[in-house]
């Protein structure tokens, strides 16, 4: 008995001193399925820095968590979409990126740097860009699907999947009604909500953790998907097709940012430089199917990837495409309210 009590006390004592000698760690906060394991392993091999990979499934969740943890947030690197870069920058949540420590920035597509969301890229370095379009499992869907509006077709009852992303889902609703996907008008948002409630009987599930999975698992046949997920999904399910809807796809650019309270900004800079190497950027794009903004990497891409319309859309695919922008907290709350009602309504 005494031994047991002693063991307990010992355990507590040890708990107190664990962590006195730690290897260098990089806390990477990223979307799920958004970085090949191989890249992390090679980074660790090269630098000795261990990467702790934690995931989120929406910009809102990432932002809320960073805000919530505030000073105790030990994340060294996060990957918000553009419209959250500007929001976080304005709210002083980010640390400026020291360009002198970044190698390979010049490889980036000039069209994707110096954007309004972050002039001069003081706070962000583009990682990947991509689109949200329609996925169709052609083995189960005979007729052609060409527009977002087609999802409302009765044939698809209980066979539709939407991403679990408030902005994206409302983007679709707004576009179908002919509005901008970045609308801040409460009237338009409400209309979109009503339009989307008509879709709800068809909606089987929301998924932003791995939007390809419900298609692969045979739960859904048609719906929203990110292009990279569609490319990855095709490996297992050949009949999975990526469609650019007539109303226009949703386009986004995700960038590395260093949160204000990062513990190891040094390692964060190293990681960004590591990813910016053309060879690594090419590897990422080939593995997970999203488009790299790194022009030097695009040269290295395998032809089958470089010519893949799903990963790298051509000019006609991008007609009507709309980039998501920051809509302000007030509009965000309107979206949030309808979003919750949408998801819990029957």
């Amino acid at each position: 008995m005494k031994k047991l009590a002693l063991a307990g006390a010992l355990a507590l004592g040890l708990a107190g001193c664990s962590g006195s000698e730690e290897p260098q760690v990089l806390n990477l906060y990223n979307w799920s399925e958004y970085m090949p394991q191989e890249v992390l392993d090679r980074f660790t091999e090269e630098t000795g820095i261990q990467v702790v990979y934690t995931t989120y499934d929406s910009n809102e969740a990432m932002y809320a968590r960073l805000k919530l943890l505030d000073e105790s947030a030990a994340y060294d690197l996060a990957v918000p979409s553009t419209y959250y870069v500007s929001k976080m920058r304005q709210e002083d949540l980010l640390m400026p990126i020291d360009r002198s420590k970044i190698e390979g920035f010049d490889n980036l597509d000039p069209e994707l740097v110096n954007l309004d969301v972050d002039p001069e890229n003081q706070y962000s370095v583009p990682f990947l860009w991509g689109t949200t379009g329609i996925a169709v499992d052609t083995a189960d869907v005979e007729s052609e699907v060409t527009a977002w509006a087609d999802l409302w077709d009765e044939r698809f009852e209980a066979r539709v999947m939407l991403t679990n992303d408030m902005r994206e889902v409302f983007h679709v609703g707004l576009r179908v009604l002919g509005y901008s996907g970045n609308s801040t008008d409460p009237k338009e948002i409400e209309e979109a909500y009503e339009k989307l409630t008509e879709l709800m009987p068809s909606v089987r599930t929301f998924n932003s953790d791995a939007p390809r999975m419900p298609y692969l698992e045979g739960e859904t046949d048609v719906g929203m998907i990110w292009n990279g997920e569609a490319v990855m999904g095709r490996d297992t399910l050949e009949s999975l097709e990526y469609v650019y809807p007539e109303e226009g796809i949703i386009a986004w650019l995700d960038s590395f940012v260093i949160p204000k309270n990062a513990r190891n900004p040094e390692a964060a800079h190293q990681f960004i430089s590591f990813v910016l190497q053309p060879e690594i950027s090419a590897l990422i794009s080939e593995e997970i199917g999203y488009a790299t903004p790194n022009l030097a990497a695009r040269e290295l891409l395998d032809d089958s990837v470089a010519n893949d319309r799903a990963s790298y859309p051509n000019a006609t695919d991008m007609i009507n495409a709309e980039f998501q922008t920051d809509i302000g907290d007030e509009a965000l709350q309107v979206y949030a309210k309808y979003w919750e009602m949408l998801k819990s309504g029957q």
Binding site: N27, E33, T54, A73, D209, A210
Partner: peptide, 16 residues
Amino acid sequence: PSYEILPLRIYSMVRV
């Protein structure tokens, strides 16, 4: 983030 535990790991795996 400084102390990741198993149930949360499982949770993110299961969700994928």
